[in-house]
């Protein structure tokens, strides 16, 4: 893509939309994916449904945080300008807020209310982690071989010191041979 297919005003609109989504993205940017989908696919027809799903899968498979799927969607909508606008939009408000809250929390770390907050939220955090694993495993729920691969990953991660990267590599090879 060499030329940006959107007008300046449309780019600004895209930017503004992602600024708002940033503040709503409790649980990660992926939590706002349904609304992103509504905006870029259903309302604006900037990309297709398949492009949207492929963007998420691609970013998940690539190294780095999964939030990069936002950049891929932006790229598919409007090239590099689109990627810049969506990525800066999704990162700016939430990062600023996170910094501010963290500093406040650190200064009040030993107070009873902050300690109650962190100790109370810890079990929920772990429950959410297992949920994330469960939801990521959605496509595997229909294939016993994929489930076997998942169980292998859990055990290998707990029982060996192998880097997660190598385990994902095993998954890629097994999958490429059509065994997942």
């Amino acid at each position: 893509m060499t030329q940006c297919p959107l007008t300046g005003a449309e780019l600004m609109d895209l930017f503004a939309h992602f600024l708002v989504l940033s503040l709503l993205s409790v649980g990660g940017a992926i939590a706002t994916a349904p609304d992103m989908h509504r905006y870029v696919v259903t309302d604006r027809h900037w990309i297709t449904d398949e492009q949207f799903t492929a963007s998420v899968a691609l970013a998940q498979a690539a190294p780095g945080p999964n939030v990069l799927f936002v950049a891929v969607i932006g790229y598919n909508v409007a090239g590099l300008a689109g990627a810049a606008v969506t990525m800066i939009g999704i990162m700016l408000p939430c990062s600023a807020l996170a910094m501010w809250v963290t500093r406040w929390g650190r200064q009040h770390r030993e107070t009873r209310s902050v300690r109650a907050f962190t100790t109370g939220m810890t079990p929920l955090t772990l429950g959410l982690l297992v949920s994330t694993g469960w939801v990521l495993a959605d496509p595997a729920h229909h294939s016993w071989r994929a489930l076997l691969l998942l169980v292998f990953a859990v055990l290998a991660s707990l029982k060996t010191q192998l880097s997660p990267m190598w385990l994902v590599g095993v998954g890629a090879v097994v999958g490429a041979f059509g065994w997942a």
């Binding site: 297992v130 694993g133 495993a137 595997a140 691969l149 998942l150 385990l167 041979f177 065994w179």
Partner: peptide, 29 residues
């Protein structure tokens, strides 16, 4: 196929992380 295989392992890794971190609950008030 490779994307599917990687997805299954990625899911397993997140669950294993939760198991590892759950040891911290022993000290939770």
């Amino acid at each position: 196929g490779a994307l599917r295989g990687m997805g299954a392992v990625a899911a397993g890794l997140v669950i294993a992380t939760a198991v590892k971190l759950s040891r911290s609950l022993r000290h939770n008030p």
